[in-house]
Design a protein around this nucleic acid. Structure first.
Lengths: 146, 146
DNA sequence: TTTAATTTTGTAATGATTACAAATATAAAA
DNA sequence: TTTTATATTTGTAATCATTACAAAATTAAA
């Protein structure tokens, strides 16, 4: 990560939490670290399974609580691809998402959704914008031809 | 509806179903009719409650089955605003959606999501694109100021 | 320390959706 | 028609992610 694009440059994960007014408990720091380094837009289950080996007492409920807390203070973006499971993205820079309908992988797209939200009806206030693309990733598209 | 914009111009709802290879049962015709005339992007529950008075034997399961069938043959678009309930849109023209975070109403936006999907990684195949905007509708924005 | 407040944890509820099988309705064959 | 086969509808039971809740554990404050 380069300096310019990282709003949290030079801060520890603990400091990031403190700056948001959140007590940096062990669980919260680990979950934040995981979210900020993950590229896979993990679900609660994925976070839970990834951290369980290093913190055997971790509870699924803690992950749910934490992820909800992070959402409220703007430390994660919640993604809903309509699969009945929510995914979480620690990358807060403006971008969009692609989900492969075959393998389920989620890719980042360099498309800024907020730039699209022109043409809003008069008087409306925009808080959030999401742009989702579904299809086949290059690997699955290649495999399909065989 | 003007002729040019309606791909089903001059067809009865029954004929629309037949053209898709679906037997036009009473339930299916009613549900399709409701979906195509509704502007509120109804949930299964809303469809069920709206039709129950005129068809007291209607089952929620039938609505679920039918809506799933319609999705598969492309008679409805499924919308997921991340509220744990799916909404259905019988308007198949390219457009986007706005959900008011206060009152929950869903509005159509005159933004064509597929035009946005440039900049796709090489080799990817796009099947579907969704653009969701969240915020306050003009009424709720007005009320908030008081 | 002792006390108070916060956080974590496990279990139990919730609620939309799906699975499934029996009942009903429709179409095809005789 | 009647009979038979097929498709559809219905109601109930299961599923499963998420939420509610209260007890246990941890941390901070007095």
């Amino acid at each position: 990560m380069e300096e310019g694009s990282n709003p949290f440059f030079m801060q520890t994960h603990s400091e990031i939490l403190q700056n948001k007014g959140i007590r940096p408990s062990v669980q919260r720091v680990r979950i934040l670290k995981f979210l900020m380094h993950s590229k896979e837009h993990p679900t609660v289950e994925m976070i839970f399974n990834a951290l369980l080996p290093e913190m055997p007492s971790l509870s699924r409920t803690t992950v749910y609580n934490t992820v909800e807390l992070f959402k409220e203070v703007g430390l994660v973006q919640v993604l809903d691809f309509g699969r009945g499971v929510l995914r979480y993205d620690g990358d807060l820079s403006p971008h969009s998402h692609f989900e492969c309908e075959k393998c389920g992988a989620v890719y980042d797209l360099d498309i800024k959704p907020q730039e699209i939200s022109k043409k809003m009806p008069r008087g409306f206030k925009v808080h959030q914008t999401y742009f989702y693309v579904f299809g086949l990733c290059s690997q699955c598209k290649k495999n399909e031809k065989n």
